[in-house]
Design a protein around this nucleic acid. Sequence first.
DNA 1: CTGCTTTACAACTACATCGTTGTGTAGTAG
DNA 2: CTACTACACAACGATGTAGTTGTAAAGCAG
Lengths: 118, 118
Amino acid sequence: MDLPRPIPADLAELIAQRLRVIGDPLRIRTLDLLRDGERPVSEIADALGTSQQNASKHLGVLLQAGIVNRHKVGTSAYYAIADDSVFALCEQVCGGIQAQVAELGALIEGTTVQEAAR
Amino acid sequence: MDLPRPIPADLAELIAQRLRVIGDPLRIRTLDLLRDGERPVSEIADALGTSQQNASKHLGVLLQAGIVNRHKVGTSAYYAIADDSVFALCEQVCGGIQAQVAELGALIEGTTVQEAAR
DNA sequence: CTGCTTTACAACTACATCGTTGTGTAGTAG
DNA sequence: CTACTACACAACGATGTAGTTGTAAAGCAG
């Protein structure tokens, strides 16, 4: 996967949109919950400690973005991960955060990151 | 880089924050420009077709997030990439978008993605 | 010192988004 | 049919953010 150079404005808009969809704490935790398999809305709402309406709304955003899919059984709506790549995304972000924390720690210690790693 | 299970709310907040910082079209294009090396603010503003004030503001956001760094020479402020991992992030997002587009195209063709790939 | 350039900060408007409240719809149990 | 459950849609208020305008600070040229 190579990015075109320079990145056209339209593509930048698409990328930004997707990042903003995932860039919400409740949605990240929702996706994390769905890692274990599909779940109905009420269960997700309970697990996140938020209202049914709010959970439904966030799931709707993820659904429209194609990150989750839905299938209904009776009155229940089961949501499941449709795009596993989001987790790789989160891990990448975590890596960046960890690197920053390590650098800050090193600054406090008055050493370089390489020295602190020893 | 393994994510803890379940993801604590604080970490979800951190990840979301970083994703939202990168999740802006102008900031993505700014980072793309900086791939070639450091640049002063006015040059970035020109390349993006926006005002100097706006470019400065976005660069400030990226700076505070630790994604770029700054060094001043005379009246000019040169910004440069501090965290290369953002590009891997963008590529990952693009991969997800491409997969979706492929799936949509396959739906229109009435075939599966595997069939369409042949 | 005067004027020009470059950058950054602050105030403002416009717009998006989060969470809540209220309500509508569909399936199910009695 | 009535009551209950599960989900989703719409409207509202609060908060956040993008972009503009105005301006201040700092360096440099004359």
